[in-house]
């Protein structure tokens, strides 16, 4: 029973990692950029949700929609101001740029909302389901359902819609995509908008479980590990990597000495990079000369 309980809380935590990892993978899939500020975008989303739901006292659904819209706008503006000049620059520069962006977002959040932790009012917080002794909080249930829905939605989007396929094309060869009439720059702006709103959803889902403060974006690093374990560029891989790390973390916390729980994500990452660098679902192949 204890194992089942750990598994459930691991899955719920893993879904959070998976959700943030989805944002990474989405941007990577469409623009081949690695966005290290994804966790900080999530933090901004959580803070906006807090502002709309707690301070302005919107109804919860309206607050969620407003948060998603705000973050989409922020994503598009970020892309336009910071990332667009970087098209065609080396990956390393873009990576550094998003690290810098993360610092800026943290400073902005600290300046606007302060550093003390806050909690988000949600209609579903507090309730639990008791399944023969295994306790599942409503907020964890909502995280799992939300993750599954988003994942399915994104999968269909990339598989079946015109925009999704155009995004894949833009990612595989920028010039060729441009030649066949895909507005690559607009695509990038849209991708950043979508990715930022996904992180907003992640922020809203996480907020009832962990508190909101400017440092909460650091779990983005673990989510990044999840994305790599799953195979960077694969949507199901991101979720699976997140689940793996979430579950292992819970078990390491109970059965291994203190400290292992915090580093288990990175140990998994290093082991994975050693034995199967391309991740669980490989999307890379060696380039031929």
């Amino acid at each position: 029973m204890e194992i089942l309980q750990l598994l459930i809380s691991g899955i719920s935590q893993g879904c959070v990692y998976g959700l943030i990892a989805l944002g990474f993978v989405l941007i990577y899939k469409a623009t081949e950029m690695v966005n290290f500020a994804q966790g900080d975008l999530m933090m901004m989303g959580a803070f906006f949700a807090y502002t709309y739901a707690n301070v302005l006292e919107f109804p919860f659904v309206i607050a969620v929609l407003a948060t998603i819209a705000t973050m989409a706008l922020i994503g598009v503006i970020t892309e336009r101001l910071l990332l667009r000049p970087m098209i065609g620059e080396p990956h390393f520069s873009v990576l550094m740029l998003t690290i810098g962006l993360g610092f800026i977002l943290r400073a902005i959040a600290g300046a606007s909302w302060g550093n003390e932790p806050r909690s988000l009012n949600t209609p579903y917080a507090g309730g639990v389901i008791d399944l023969n002794g295994v306790i599942l909080g409503y907020e964890n249930l909502v995280i799992m359902i939300g993750t599954a829905l988003l994942c399915a939605l994104l999968y269909c989007f990339f598989r079946f819609t015109r925009l999704g396929i155009a995004m894949q094309a833009a990612s595989q060869n920028q010039l060729a995509a441009f030649y066949v009439g895909i507005p690559v720059k607009r695509i990038y702006a849209i991708v950043w908008g979508i990715s930022a709103s996904i992180s907003a959803v992640a922020g809203i889902l996480v907020a009832p479980v962990s508190l909101i403060d400017p440092q909460m974006g650091f779990i983005g690093i673990k989510a990044f590990a999840a994305a790599i374990v799953g195979g960077f560029g694969s949507l199901p891989g991101a979720i699976l990597g997140g689940l793996l790390i979430g579950v292992v973390e819970q078990f390491a916390g109970l059965y291994l000495p203190t400290g292992f729980s915090d580093v288990s994500a990175y140990i998994i990452l290093l082991i994975m990079l050693l034995i199967r660098p391309q991740g669980i679902f490989a999307t890379m192949q060696q380039k031929k000369v």
Binding site: M86, E89, M96, L97, G100, F103, I104, R106, N115
Partner: peptide
């Protein structure tokens, strides 16, 4: 509170662009 890292980040971004 986070002014210093924020300025670091801003400078990094500006230099890279």
């Amino acid at each position: 509170p986070g002014l210093e890292p924020g300025i670091f980040g801003l400078i990094l971004v500006l230099v890279l662009i």
